[in-house]
Amino acid sequence: MKKIILLSLAIFAFTASFAQQTFETAMKTNLDSLTNAKNPVSVQDCVNRFERMANAEPNRWEAFYHLAYSQIIYNFWLHGNNKRQTALLDQADTNLEKALGLKGDKSEIYTLQGFIFQSRIQLEPAQAMQYAQQSSELFNRAIQANKDNPRPYYLSGMNTFYTPEQFGGGVKNALPKFETAKEKFDVEKKANKNVLLPVWGTDENEKMIEKCKK
């Protein structure tokens, strides 16, 4: 009898650590599939997986964060379908609010909020001025919250890159931002971060540096 109790205790302990591990593993697997997704169907599948995880783990800000990120990425794949893109970005916004409410990493969340405004410019060009301003304000806040976060530098570089040179934009002004981002990406890589924390942006930033140097 004693053995049974021990056995069930062991099973219980195993299950508990398994749940924690499952979340991390599932997140990690899905983050990898998102990175490797090459068509809208597989990106949509990743969004759905993140959504299931977020619904099942309503106390993990990481789930809502990555869900929002995947929704922003998916929005780019839907280019031309304004209505669905807007709905996706609205939902990503709601998910980030939840992530903030769960005391998630402010710097990372502000960055994504800025990313959403940046993405809206394509959908509502008439509001470009306002959205560009709102996005850069959020990137500034993201940097204020954590100056070692490379992502707000990268995205604010994107804002600059697509602004004509005579308005303080262009390659010349964007490159230093991408380079700052690169330095911080390199530090981040060495830091051996928790797998649940965001690491996206390195490759995209590299590509932009190449583009600038051409």
Binding site: T22, V41, Q44, D45, V47, N48, R49, E51, R52, A56
Partner: peptide, 13 residues
Amino acid sequence: ANITIKGTYEGTT
């Protein structure tokens, strides 16, 4: 569309 088995990560698209 997302199909979720309630309370789990399981489901399909």
